[in-house]
Design a protein around this nucleic acid. Structure first.
Lengths: 253, 253
DNA sequence: AGATCGTGTTCGTCAATCGTGAACGATCCC
DNA sequence: GGGATCGTTCACGATTGACGAACACGATCT
């Protein structure tokens, strides 16, 4: 089942496995977790007790759930991003102006994470995406970020994470992706035309500061509102000026 | 130094110690952490390697930092709170209307955590408080929550966490606290008059749903604007109506 | 009412492994 | 170019993490 890597701490890995089960099931009992992970009840109990001590798990009756200690760590990590603080007001403005969803994503180890979002209709919850990973190639912001990387690095990332298909329009070929990234680099922004979710278009631009990509801003919405033309004619300008202002704000803090 | 509790997993505790150092220093190297924790470099390296595998730590050159995996877990935990989604728009509205800072806090194991906040002047960053713990007795929302607990439970919490003093006006006596909680219960909201930070007043109300406290909403701002009278005459009404709407929203989801 | 199942919890036991310290490569700086 | 760092790797030994049986408790049947 598992190749026990001697370079890592197994006990910590099982603890994360426990956390994983707790996340998947939204809470679970000792026996349930033990069965799922093929561990003894007592072992699971010990791990849970440790996690409770660290405030990362809470016990309510016979059920254990993930605790606010994890939220504490998570918030700390987000607050460590300068670009988060600087981008937040801009994201809000854009969301207000356009009435669409606006996102800030950042890259880490070849994947992107939704760091902050705002706007959109009330029936779609932006918070359900915040804090989730996404591949770079099927996201307007992700392609914007990739456009700032060298071809070598792009290939490395593709080798590691692949180019999984989400819709019929997803780019699944490396060379096609590289061509798309060149177009993106030329015009300064990337489009996502139903490449991740059918019915959703998006436009994204990279945030560059001191020769490094800090992340990307993107606007996403229903494909019939964010048509390809309106992206080019309307939204591109708004997005790029917002990003430019943001980049200035990053230098003169 | 440490009483090794046989009921817990030591290796996991050291991993959390490593995470703690990384948080305190905002990133560190292997040697640095090893010295701080009195561990061998190789041990620290192993822990860091496992944390990198779990995406909870990232390596940049010779420095390790906390990674976005932690943010992923943290966001999941916050999204698990129904009251977060329901309160968010109300918090925003209140912040817009009043121009002051508005908070949603929740309780866990006798402590409170800032789950969401908005508003306030731009020089004070609401996000720096989000994701941090606070004692219940020196917070308007915290006192609002405590007012819904039995005297027994309040005493338990005080026994466990104490009543640390922050300012000259902090309540540090249990009986005084219980009296204050009764006043709070009678009028439906709690005041915080420079009990946590000098120059800051706040007003908070508990969010009750199905006989259980889900958290508290509070408005905080400069003491000269949020005077005691204006809290009673102006802000109390706005706050309580917001909470009432929210409570209705919680039942009919 | 009694018994059986289900929890989570505790406890001793033993092998797996977590932590150690020394050696290794790479950088950087003097 | 040598003398510091740094992070990384490896083999070994003592610690301990995982096990499984026994425990206490509650619910749910019979």
């Amino acid at each position: 089942m598992d190749e026990t890597d001697p370079q890592t701490v197994g006990a910590v890995e099982t603890t994360f496995a426990v956390i994983g089960v707790l996340q998947d099931r939204g809470g679970a009992g000792v026996t349930e977790i033990a069965n799922e992970l093929d561990l003894s009840k007592s072992a699971v109990h010990k791990h849970l007790a440790t996690l409770v001590d660290q405030r990362c798990v809470v016990q309510r009756g016979d059920e254990y759930r993930l605790g606010l200690g994890l939220f504490q760590y998570g918030s700390f990590v987000r607050n460590g991003y300068d670009v988060f603080h600087k981008a937040k007001p801009r994201v809000r403005e854009l969301a207000e102006e356009t009435g669409e969803m606006v996102w800030l994503i950042v890259e880490e180890n070849g994947m992107a994470m939704y760091l902050f979002g705002d706007g959109g209709s009330l029936d779609i919850n932006v918070d359900s995406l915040v804090g989730t990973w996404t591949h770079l190639h099927l996201n307007s912001g992700g392609k914007a970020i990739l456009s700032q990387f060298s071809e070598e690095r792009v290939r490395e990332i593709v080798d590691e994470h692949g180019l999984p298909r989400r819709t019929a329009r997803t780019i699944t070929d490396v060379d096609e992706l590289l061509a798309e990234l060149e177009r993106t680099r030329d015009r300064g922004y990337a489009l996502n035309l139903e490449e991740d979710l059918t019915g959703i278009h998006a436009i994204g631009a990279p945030i560059v500061h001191r020769e490094e990509v800090q992340g990307a801003l993107s606007i996403a919405g229903a494909a019939n509102r964010l048509t390809e033309e309106r992206c080019h004619d309307e939204y591109a300008d708004r997005l790029l000026t917002a990003v430019n202002d943001l980049e200035l704000n990053l230098t003169y803090r």
